[in-house]
Structures are given as structure tokens and as C-alpha cells.
Amino acid sequence: MLQAAAFYILAASAVISAFMVVAARNPVRAVLFLILTFFSAAGLFVLLGAEFLAMILVIVYVGAVAVLFLFVVMMLDIDFATLKAGSAGYLPLGGLIALAIAAQLALVGFAWVGADGAAVHLQAPMPEDTHNIAALGALIYDRYVLFFQLAGLILLVAMIGAIVLTLRHRDGVKRQNMHRQVNRSRGEAVEVIDVKRGEGIG
């Protein structure tokens, strides 16, 4: 009973906030609704017993990705009114794409047939002594280690690409060299001059 109530509350907040992401007039509020959507999804993961996935979702998406997203949207100061000005013209195309995706989802939902005996495994209880973190680790680092490494490599390449695209060497930029700064002696930094009265330093 309690779990069902929690599910309906979280699911409703996920759907409503996902809709508000599109409907919100203010871009910053749209991002905030996106964050609420992530958060509700994390709550649904907890209800499924996948607490590790839920925490990772919160840490990675809510705690890091969305912060940077919010950061960019705040700095850009986008005016949604001008962006949305010509959007009515795209309505037929957009509607068509939405319809295609909805049809695909429906096909998957109704026509999907599980492998023989898969349903039994779906209902099988977790062994008492394994946490789902250990189970997930055994899968990722053992059976699917190649895919895991490949995914990591793809991310690395994307990261290097982004850095190379934006890296610009400029001349004449003053940089602080901590090592040199700490290691310089009094002799090379300070010079004591005995200034005669009335003459100054020429």
C-alpha cells in the first residue's frame, strides 16, 4: 500500500515535471523541472530495489551534469519568445516524429515476447547475501568488461575532442608558476639600495 502510494506520487511528479520542461516559459525553470524529473526517476529506482542506480543517477545527473547545464542556461540568458517564434511551422514534422516514436513504443510494449523461461528469472528473488552493487559489479567488470571499457574509451575520445575544439593558445598570457615562486630566494627578489638624502634613485 505504502509502496503503491510512493510509486504513484513519484511517477506523477516525473510525468508532470517532464511536461513542464517543455511547457515552462523560463529556460532556467525548465532546467529545474528537468532536475525534478531526474530526481523522481531516482525515487522510482529506489522503489525497484536498485538503490545503487538511484544514487548514481542523483550524483551524476542531478549533482554534476544538471548543475553545469543550469550554469550555461543562466549565463546565456536565452529569450524563449524569439526562439519559439517560428515553431508553429515545424508542428507537422514534429508531430510526425512524435507519432512514429509513439508507434514504436507501442510496438515494443505489445508485441514483445520474452525468451523461454525468462519470466521465471524475472520473478526470482535476489540471493540474501548479495547486494545489488556486488551483483552489478560482477556483471560490469566480469562478463561485460569489454563493453564497459569501450564505453569509457568513447567518452574519453569525446572529452579530448571537446578540449581540442575549444583549446586556443594565446600569446602574452601571464601564468603563475608555483614552483618557481616558492623556490625563489630573497637574493633574487629583493634589492636593498642605500638612497642618499635628496638624490633619489637615478
Partner: peptide, 22 residues
Amino acid sequence: DINVGILYVFAISSLGVYGIII
């Protein structure tokens, strides 16, 4: 007393930035 206690604390402390940024 949850099994992912460390991750939970880390997740919540990473949310703390929202109060400031908003």
C-alpha cells in the same frame, strides 16, 4: 541504515549546490 550510505551522503551533499545557485 541503508546499504549505500556513503553514496547517499555524497549524492545529498552534491545537491547542496542548488540552494546557492538558485
